[in-house]
Structure formats: C-alpha cells, structure tokens
Amino acid sequence: KAKLLVLLYAFVATDADTICIGYHANNSTDTVDTILEKNVAVTHSVNLLEDSHNGKLCKLKGIAPLQLGKCNITGWLLGNPECDSLLPARSWSYIVETPNSENGACYPGDLIDYEELREQLSSVSSLERFEIFPKESSWPNHTFNGVTVSCSHRGKSSFYRNLLWLTKKGDSYPKLTNSYVNNKGKEVLVLWGVHHPSSSDEQQSLYSNGNAYVSVASSNYNRRFTPEIAARPKVRDQHGRMNYYWTLLEPGDTIIFEATGNLIAPWYAFALSRGFESGIITSNASMHECNTKCQTPQGAINSNLPFQNIHPVTIGECPKYVRSTKLRMVTGLRNIPSIQYRGLFGAIAGFIEGGWTGMIDGWYGYHHQNEQGSGYAADQKSTQNAINGITNKVNSVIEKMNTQFTAVGKEFNNLEKRMENLNKKVDDGFLDIWTYNAELLVLLENERTLDFHDLNVKNLYEKVKSQLKNNAKEIGNGCFEFYHKCDNECMESVRNGTYDYPKYSEESKLNR
C-alpha cells in the first residue's frame, strides 16, 4: 500500500503543469573576455578590431598615390635624371617610397634638414613645378651647363633637372645676384646647392675665386655659405661634395641669391598645395585598381571598426592602431551559463540550468507544459528593451572611439638618435595607453552587458513569482510547478501579467 502511494505521488508530481523562465541559446562559437572571465561563450557579439588588409596600394578616395619607385624624396625633388618619370607629377593622395629606393642625390652630399622637408611634404597633396630662374636668361655671365658622370643618364654625363651647376664663363666668375618674388599665391619650395671641391685647383678651375661665398636671403631665411675645400674619400667617382638646401617662400615674399662661386642654382621650384589627408609611407606593396579610405604600408583597410592592429602608420580615415589581438564586445547572452554566478555589478545569474535553442524569437521568455502540450514563448517587451539598450551602447562606444585619422611616422637624422629613441618611447607609451583603454573598455562593457542580461532574466522570474504567489511552488531551476490546472489561456495570463490569483487560489489551497 505504501509503495502504491509513492508511485501515485510521483505520477501526480510529474503530471503537474509547469512554467519556466529562460533565455535564448544557439550554436554560436563566439567568445568574449570580461573583467572576471576569459573566453566566455556568448550567443552574439561584435568585433571592434580590424585585423585584415588587402595587401595592395590603392587610390585614396579615388585619387591615385605618387609612387616614387626607384627614387626617394631627395632624388625626386632635386631632379635626379633617373627620376625623370616623376617630373610630370602634379597631385596625389599620398606618397609612396620603397624601403630600398636607390636614386637620391646622384652627386654625393646631403639634403640639409631632410627630415623636416619630409614632414612638410606629408601635408602636401599637389604642386606646380615651374621655372623659377629661366636657364637661358638668368645667368648671362656664367656657364650653366655643368654636368657630371655621377648623374649620368643613358650613358652620358648629366645633372639634376631642377638645378643648374653654374661655373665660370671664360676665365671669370663675376659676382651674381638674382631674385624671385613669389607671385603664386601659395608657398613655394625653393631648392639650391653649394659645391665643396676637393682641392684649391678644382676650386680655381671651376670658379676662378679662391674665397667664394654663397648667400641666400628671404624674410624668414638668411644664410651665408662658404665652400669647404678638403680631400675626401671618393664616392660615386667624386672627391667633391654638394650640400643641398631648401626653404619655403611665403606668398609675396622675395628670395635673393648672391654668389661669387660654388652656387648650384635653382632652375625649377614648386608651388605647394596642402592636403590634410596626405602623407608619406614606405612600402613594398604594389599598386592595383582599387579604392580605399584608409591606406597602410601593408595594404588598404576598408573598415568602419574603431581599432586596427595592422600597422601604426596610416593615411586617410583609419581606425586607431592598438596592439590588441582581440577586441570583441558582447551583444547577446551567455551561451554556457554559470550556476549560481554573481556578476561584478550585482546581477544574479545561473538559476537557469541552460539556455534554450528552441526559443528563437527572443532573448528571454517562457517554456510551459500542461495537458494541452508544451512550447516556448519569447517575452518580446523585455527582449526589445534589451536590444535597444545594447545597440545604443555599442553604437555609442564605437562612435566615441571611432575617431579616424592619419598617423604618419616621424623623421630623425643620424645625429638625432637620442631624440628618436625618446620619441619611440613616448609613442610606445601612448600606444600602451590606447591599447589598455580599449581593452579595459571592452572588458568592463562585456561584464556589464552579461550582468544586464542576467538581471533581465531574474526580473522576469520575479515578475512571475509575484503573480503566482503560493498558487505554485519554485522547483529550483527557474521553473514553477502549479498547484492547479493551468491551461493555455492561464499560461498566457502569466506571461502577459494578467494572471488571476484569486481564481485559482482555492484549487491551489486544496492541492498544497
């Protein structure tokens, strides 16, 4: 008799109507990190870190770059004969040098303040090359056809396309004075040089004057150069050297050249137009028929994500570079809930034993079982409120962090190594801060989002509990077992918050 009662009780308990509160689960393989956990499985997430590029040089917003090819900045601007293909260059979106560009200054020497000139050019998007001192009329008392084997072109001695090597005419090199007034309405880049012979005999042979000088002056520039005559090792078949100089001439300003020898005179100059998204990159990537809004030396990035880990040097509207390998923000729920887990921000989770793959029309909802059958029903209101809140948060985070910009490298010469090392340390410090901030932001927001979901499920549970009161009992896994019969209409009233407690209280009292 006792065995019969136990079996009867078990049958009745199993047959009781139930309603459970749960949440969506799926077959997603997404994982995120939080402050407290690593690799948390979630139903949905968004990636904030771009880690792919196309490996190509592309047009930037429809404008092609200027590819210097086998030449570098120095060779292009001075007019190395091997860089003749660059003479027609007028406009570009950015400038590309190759790491091993070999054609710079063909006659050995240095372009002074080269690093600063590169910085200036990094904001130039177009130029006009014009004859600042016409070759045939500007130097009537001097020979202007100086050439050298060091600047050979097609097997013949030649010289820079933008400079003139002035030497004596006959047996004399009379003092020369020439000036140019900038009437271009924009900055003009003027380049010139000073020749330093290897011996007094060479000085006399070329310029006749043993104590020659070169003077260059404008409103913002004033220097006097004296040739340094000295024996030097042979470089590119030359014992002599040429140093090259430049200045930016403001609109309306005048530049005056005065010399008694050794002047490498300007022939062509450049009127410059600035462009905020221009820059110089060093890259071996090849040019393709493609378009982008962000270019790196590795390749083009076409992404609206706020961060990238491809390269710190970028041109155009680019994500911020960070050292992170993963920045994924959760938008959905835990896919593998932890039992009795309390989140960092106070939300209680884990009283549900598992997510439901059968509930596909919402994030949170119900599963019921009664004599009429069983089924899932999503709670659309709480789901939609959660979707709206999380979507707004993700968009806000992306908008705040998605300050796209150009980031170019800084140039230092060989004598500025300590400054370069200090600059690298400062840049590394800023990069570490950006990386830390980005990672911390994602970790915190992921923790908040998961706790937010847990709290929403808990609130749904409490909503049902407050309606049923003692007409049902909690069975410990997020479910309630009714003390009365609850048909589909009754189940719907529980879900929509209109459950009639008094209607079922007498039946429940008897069954309790």
Rank of each mutant, 00 (worst) to 15 (best):
L5K: 04
L5D: 00
V6D: 01
V6R: 14
L7N: 03
A13T: 10
A16F: 06
T18C: 00
I19A: 05
I21E: 04
N26F: 14
T29H: 13
T31E: 15
V32N: 00
T34F: 06
I35R: 04
L36S: 15
K38E: 09
V40K: 08
A41I: 01
H44N: 09
V46K: 12
V46I: 14
N47I: 02
L48F: 09
L49Y: 08
S52L: 10
S52N: 11
S52Q: 13
K59Y: 14
L60N: 08
G62F: 06
G62T: 08
I63H: 10
A64C: 01
P65W: 09
P65R: 03
L66S: 07
L68V: 07
K70F: 00
K70H: 01
N72T: 14
G75F: 03
W76K: 04
W76P: 01
P81G: 05
P81C: 03
C83Y: 03
S91Q: 13
Y94R: 09
A105F: 08
C106N: 02
Y107G: 07
G109V: 08
L111P: 00
I112H: 14
E116Q: 07
E116A: 08
E119Y: 10
E119W: 10
V124F: 08
S125E: 11
S125V: 11
S125T: 14
L127C: 03
L127K: 07
E128L: 07
R129V: 06
R129K: 15
F133M: 15
S138M: 11
S138W: 14
W139G: 06
N141S: 09
V147L: 01
K156D: 07
K156W: 04
F159Q: 02
R161A: 06
R161T: 10
L163D: 02
L164C: 05
W165A: 03
W165H: 03
T167L: 15
K168E: 14
S172V: 15
S172G: 08
Y173H: 07
P174L: 10
L176A: 15
N178H: 02
V181H: 09
E187H: 08
V188C: 06
V190L: 15
H195E: 03
H196Y: 13
P197V: 14
S199Q: 07
D201N: 10
S205P: 00
L206D: 03
S208R: 10
Y213S: 09
V216E: 09
A217K: 03
Y221H: 14
N222G: 10
R224C: 10
R224V: 10
A230P: 00
A231D: 06
R232H: 13
R232K: 14
P233C: 02
G240C: 06
R241L: 11
N243H: 15
T247I: 15
L248H: 00
P251E: 14
P251A: 15
I255E: 00
F257A: 00
N262G: 03
A265V: 14
A269W: 09
S273E: 09
R274T: 08
S278Y: 00
S278M: 03
I280R: 03
I281E: 12
